[in-house]
């Protein structure tokens, strides 16, 4: 997690190195956007009310649909920030990728930073 301090470009780490994906301004706290990465894969990028920056794979492993960017962001009583899939509502920890409703399932997490 990186703290956002000023308007800047959001960058994700990929096998090809850091890739700039969008302006910080395009992120609304609590909502996500989908981005297309150079290898054709998709990531979902979020920011929360504290300014935290998160990126995970956009594919919802329960349905196969590329929709996680369109879920709602929330936090657990313990403070874990997660995204709830818009389809069947399973929640995924945005920092670890772990599914909070089914420990056997997880999604890939990208490092994100402001460049």
């Amino acid at each position: 997690m990186t703290t956002v301090t000023a308007t800047a470009r959001v960058e994700l780490q990929t096998p090809e190195g850091w890739v700039a994906v969008c302006d910080r301004d395009r992120l609304t706290p609590g909502r996500g956007v989908a981005v297309l990465l150079p290898d054709g894969s998709q990531a979902a990028v979020f920011t929360d009310r504290q300014g935290g920056l998160y990126a995970v794979a956009n594919r919802d492993p329960f349905t196969g649909a590329y929709v996680l960017s369109r879920g709602l962001l929330g936090s657990t009583p313990e403070g874990r920030v997660y995204i709830a899939s818009p389809l069947l509502k399973q929640r995924f920890d945005l920092s670890t990728g772990e599914c909070l409703d089914d420990p056997a399932v997880s999604i890939a997490v990208h490092s994100a930073r402001l460049g």
Partner: peptide, 10 residues
């Protein structure tokens, strides 16, 4: 709670 809220209350 403080936090972000959740997919129920939002």
């Amino acid at each position: 709670l403080s936090g972000e809220g959740c997919e129920v209350c939002k």
